[in-house]
Amino acid sequence: MRNDFHAELDSLTGSLSQMCGLAGLAMERATQALLQADLVLAEQVITDHEHLTRMQLHAEEASLLLLALQAPVAGDLRVVVTSMQNVADAERMGGLALHVAKIARIRHPAPALPEEVNGYFAEMGRIAVDLGNNARDVVLSRDPEKAAQIGRDDDAMDQLHRHLFTLMMDREWGHGVAAAVNVTLLGRFYERFADHAAAIGRRVVFQVTGSTPDV
């Protein structure tokens, strides 16, 4: 019975890791669609999100079955419960990439962003993809130091997000209200993506140590 339990737990962990990787891939494609006004990539992100949603439902069902049928305790219980929470975060990461892609699609064929901020969003996209991939890796490795690092890496995203507001509040901003709304929404999507990745990292630390890092 315990061998079956751990096999099912490994399967759940593998699914969660795959979801994090898919969320990172979705944000990579969504960022390219945003910066290049690429309708094909935007549509691909939108279509692919359904697969991530199905994975979430299956993983949550598997978690509930493990809780109901196996009655895990101690460390095993932490892994099951936090994995269920992490699955929701991974799906939400993909959902935020979906929002980015939808804005790119709505604005097509025009660019959604002023050229002035493209560099900032390129960097935010790079950080988001790295965070998604790091979450994918630490879910499998359960390395508490690397998991805690995700939260620290989130600070770089926060700094870029704050800087976007500085640009828009500057008297030199000449792109109008519609562009400012796009920048505000999109900046928030990237910032929240990073927050969800950091939450996954904190829960991996909790899985391993039983305590939550102060990051």
Score class of each variant (00 low, 15 high):
residue 2 R to V: 09
residue 4 D to C: 02
residue 5 F to C: 02
residue 10 D to A: 13
residue 17 S to P: 01
residue 20 C to I: 04
residue 22 L to R: 10
residue 23 A to M: 09
residue 25 L to E: 14
residue 26 A to K: 02
residue 27 M to S: 00
residue 29 R to N: 15
residue 30 A to C: 06
residue 39 L to I: 08
residue 46 I to D: 02
residue 50 E to M: 12
residue 50 E to L: 14
residue 55 M to L: 14
residue 55 M to Y: 06
residue 56 Q to D: 15
residue 56 Q to C: 10
residue 58 H to K: 10
residue 59 A to S: 14
residue 61 E to T: 15
residue 63 S to Q: 13
residue 67 L to F: 10
residue 68 A to V: 06
residue 70 Q to Y: 07
residue 73 V to N: 04
residue 84 M to F: 09
residue 89 D to A: 14
residue 91 E to D: 03
residue 92 R to K: 12
residue 94 G to R: 08
residue 98 L to V: 03
residue 103 I to G: 03
residue 110 A to M: 10
residue 115 E to T: 15
residue 122 A to L: 14
residue 122 A to F: 05
residue 123 E to K: 13
residue 124 M to Y: 05
residue 135 A to E: 09
residue 137 D to S: 15
residue 137 D to L: 14
residue 137 D to Q: 14
residue 139 V to Q: 04
residue 141 S to T: 13
residue 150 I to W: 01
residue 154 D to Y: 07
residue 156 A to W: 04
residue 158 D to E: 05
residue 158 D to L: 02
residue 161 H to V: 08
residue 161 H to G: 05
residue 162 R to C: 07
residue 164 L to Y: 05
residue 172 E to Q: 13
residue 178 A to I: 08
residue 179 A to F: 07
residue 180 A to S: 14
residue 184 T to S: 15
residue 184 T to L: 06
residue 185 L to Q: 12
residue 185 L to K: 10
residue 188 R to P: 01
residue 203 R to Y: 08
residue 215 V to G: 01
